[in-house]
């Protein structure tokens, strides 16, 4: 992932910045300029809560090269209280215990390393509440 591309993504990756449509209330994450539901153009910046609930999940056992050392790992679609959904890894637990309905906190972590000695890429992962 080239550095300018990574840098552009910092607002959502580091700060969980989303956009709320002032017309219909839809929360889009990452932020967009056009509401995906009503096509409204008036969106305000909103930060997602650092917790949520698993909508659906899996355990990746055959992983891409960059994640091979971490396999098997759980991945899930998480819904935050604002109604935004995001794809994250679920860590600090037995991956087999992750499933729909699980309450999680979103924590700031190293996600991957850029190829060929490039930058370290950060973002959020989920951990089970009280885990």
């Amino acid at each position: 992932m080239p550095s300018p591309r990574y840098w552009r993504e910092i607002p959502n990756r580091f700060r969980l910045e989303a956009a709320r449509c002032t017309g219909c209330g839809t929360v889009a994450f990452p932020a967009r300029t056009i509401c995906p539901k009503c096509r409204g153009r008036e969106l305000e910046s909103v930060r997602l809560s650092r917790h949520g609930k698993v909508v659906t999940s899996t355990v990746v056992r055959v992983a891409p090269d960059e994640f091979m050392m971490e396999a098997p790992y759980a991945m899930a679609v998480i819904e935050t209280p604002e109604g935004a959904r995001l794809m994250t890894q679920v860590v600090d637990c037995d991956p087999d215990t992750v499933g729909p309905g699980m309450e999680v906190d979103l924590v700031f972590r190293l996600i991957r390393k850029e190829d060929h000695g490039g930058i370290l890429c950060y973002g959020h992962k989920a951990v089970p509440v009280g885990g």
């Binding site: 992932m1 990746v60 790992y73 991945m75 679609v77 794809m87 996600i111 890429c121 973002g123």
Partner: peptide
């Protein structure tokens, strides 16, 4: 993909 999902992973979800 940034977060480590694969195609089998997406269909598994």
């Amino acid at each position: 993909v940034y977060h480590g999902i694969t195609f089998p992973g997406l269909y598994a979800m």
